[in-house]
Nucleic acid binder design. Structure first.
Lengths: 220, 220
DNA sequence: GATCGTCTCCCCCGTGCGGGGGAGGCTCGT
DNA sequence: ACGAGCCTCCCCCGCACGGGGGAGACGATC
């Protein structure tokens, strides 16, 4: 059975584009569309899609609130893929925090969009804004430093959060990080939580993966 | 204050070599030597070293038993760095399982030995047999495939364990891995535990780091 | 002076994780 | 036929982890 998708975006053009891209796949079926966040809940109840591809910025009810509403009011809620125009959209982090499962740039290539929908449908998380990896590619992966710095800015990690992520990527526990930074473990937990939210990671392992994949830390 | 080290090895030559290498560092001090595992406990009680560099294969009491004994009978036990001649020494995994904090090949370069002692003293774990990284370097890092395969053999991961590690390195939880492999979560836990033990990793995060560092999985 | 962001620390709470055991079935090699 | 290794699943258990809140202190910015 195919993956069923509900498209939610205020721009018809975007909906049409997504539909075209997704319907080209034999295993993906677009079962409905909505133009604002408020229409989503009843549509989801009726259509029961596997995945909701949802814009963050919409009239009536934005993607964040719609995500919260879905997860709160619908049992067995669909997986939620947040779609956005802007690379550095803080609303996206809000949405991820609200329970969205993934992140997608509208300018992504069709193959990436399809890939994202499939991954989400499989129950996995897109753990890092695709933009970051793109960014690393754009910079030609010159060894990681420029790309890492840019990725940092993209994810808007503070200096302290960056330190913590680096230590996480060396395998340290919260307690060890606390000792190293000479602060309390509760403080470290705060920073770790902030890092996870900003990277869209579910746990420290995913955060470390993101650190490697983005070039924020380099292997070897 | 310097890092104090106790050397435990049945070969005087090895002890002398370690002493020479370590004493060359201003911040490291060798405070004692022992030729067998049985002598270790009283020496540790008296000298209270920060780090014990211990051979695995020794007369009277081997490194594994000595490690267990130390951790069981001494309060505030020292950090334990396991030293071995053979790259693929299953005794080492036993020792790590018994509570040793790190792993070191006798043929390692002086700088690596010093680095290992410092890391251990800082309270961190050497999470992956240094041999694996060396190995990756030996193979010239040809993209990771040959090195990864060799690293696999080095760590003696079974096929299933390799699959599990790969999924861990994609950020999947135990439950997600179980779903993916169509087995129970308890089974996945078994495999994960095996992977952690074989890699000398403390948790899945360290295992994933090891996977990246060894080239077992490639970023990008 | 007020506001914002960062860093620091605190509470409660559920649960996924990992260690410690064990055990049965399977294939393979001898 | 037997053991070895692997895969599978089970038990109990403690704890680090991560989410959800909140709050005070400081500096920069407005």
């Amino acid at each position: 059975m195919p993956v069923t998708v509900l498209l939610v975006d205020d721009e018809p053009l975007v909906r049409a584009g997504l539909r075209a891209v997704l319907e080209a796949q034999p295993d993906i079926e677009v079962v409905g569309e909505a133009a604002d966040g408020a229409s989503v809940i009843p549509l989801v109840r009726r259509l029961r899609p596997d995945v909701v591809a949802m814009d963050v910025r919409m009239p009536l009810l934005d993607g964040i609130e719609a995500t919260r509403a879905l997860l709160r009011t619908v049992d067995e809620p669909p997986r939620i893929l947040v779609v956005t125009t802007f690379e550095n959209d803080e609303y996206v982090y809000e949405a991820l925090r609200a329970g969205a499962d993934g992140f997608l740039l509208k300018r992504a290539r069709p193959a990436e969009i399809v890939h994202a929908v499939r991954l989400i449908a499989e129950g996995e998380s897109l753990l890092f804004p695709a933009s970051v990896r793109q960014l690393a590619a754009e910079y030609g992966d010159d060894g990681g430093n420029r790309a890492a710095r840019a990725a940092m800015e993209r994810a808007q990690l503070t200096e302290r959060e960056g330190e913590v992520l680096r230590l996480m990527a060396r395998g340290l526990s919260n307690a060890e990080i606390a000792a190293r930074l000479v602060v309390g473990t509760e403080t470290v937990k705060s920073h770790v939580s902030a890092v996870l939210a900003k990277l869209g990671a579910r746990d420290r392992t995913q955060a470390v993966i993101a650190a490697y994949e983005s070039g924020f830390v380099a292997p070897g």
